[in-house]
């Protein structure tokens, strides 16, 4: 049973000083794994202090590239394992995507090819991961702007199969579901209903840019109203308190603004479960 942590925010460099002084309405932090793996200096000092204060930290990576046929990188795994054990993360996560292929990094999240072959590779990788890192793993659904005509499964079918064939948990990004639903014209609620809620260990909420032809998942703005509504609906629908994180990676605001977003998430949880 994975514990409920409450509401968290991403631990970002501009907020290091503030979070050590007073983390306010925030119950836990999410670390972008690659920003702390192998780093000394200030980043290491900050997580050491938070760990000493018993503040929960979860590691969220970008580099596993589950969807590529490249082998898992042993050096990467060793550094990731060190970090996870150092902060004693209750779980760790990465994206259901290709972040590299043929050993070249994209530094972006590209959609996986949704075929049987690809599914088998990801299942194997998740199983290998469990042998190396003895902490629960969750994969996150990404936002995407293109779907290959070579896919033989929908995103939902692919996720369902992955959950069936592995012991993995899911980090459900509600904003990504909303963005994809708007861009590709499917029903976000139907999608969410079809995900087994007992496997959802964490939720991501973030902002997006709805000013152009395509909605872009920017992680650079406040959580918009429709995403808050969908979040509330999902909690009511599942009847389950799920650890929730406010993601804000670009145009990072001052800590008070971020804290207000965390407070809003907390108010919704309190309202739903009062």
């Amino acid at each position: 049973m994975i514990e409920y942590l409450g509401i968290g925010v991403g631990l970002r460099r501009p907020h290091f000083h503030t979070v050590l002084e007073n983390k306010k309405d925030v119950d836990w932090f999410e670390l972008v794994s690659e920003n702390f793996m192998g780093f000394g200096g200030r980043p290491r000092a900050v997580i050491t202090e938070l760990h000493r204060k018993k503040v929960p930290m979860v590691c969220h990576g970008l580099g596993l590239s589950l969807g590529s046929s490249d082998q898992l990188n042993h050096q990467y795994l060793a550094e990731l394992k060190n970090l996870i054990e150092f902060v004693d993360a209750p779980w760790f996560s990465d994206h259901l995507c290709l972040s590299s292929a043929k050993e070249i990094q994209f530094h972006d999240l590209l959609p996986v090819l949704k075929t049987e072959e690809s599914l088998n590779i990801i299942v194997n990788k998740i199983n290998q991961l469990a042998k190396v890192i003895d902490h629960p793993f969750a994969f996150e659904n990404i936002s995407y702007y293109m779907e290959s005509s070579h896919n033989t499964m929908s995103e939902l079918e692919f996720i369902q199969e992955l959950l069936k064939q592995t012991q993995s948990y899911m980090l459900l990004d509600i904003n990504n579901v909303y963005v994809n639903a708007m861009n590709f014209g499917f029903d976000a609620k139907e999608f969410l209903k079809a995900i087994p809620a007992e496997r959802v260990v964490q939720i991501h909420l973030a902002g997006h840019d709805d000013s152009g032809e395509v909605i872009i998942d920017t992680h650079g703005a406040q959580v918009p109203h429709p995403v808050w509504k969908l979040y509330q609906w999902y909690l009511e629908h599942t009847g389950k308190k799920i650890s929730t994180l406010i993601e804000w990676d670009h145009n990072i605001p001052d800590y008070d603004t971020l804290n207000k977003q965390a407070k809003m998430a907390k108010e919704i949880i309190n309202k739903v479960f009062s």
Partner: peptide
């Protein structure tokens, strides 16, 4: 298209 071809083309 198999995964190998997909990746090569992406790069």
């Amino acid at each position: 298209m198999n995964l190998e071809q997909y990746q090569k083309s992406l790069v």
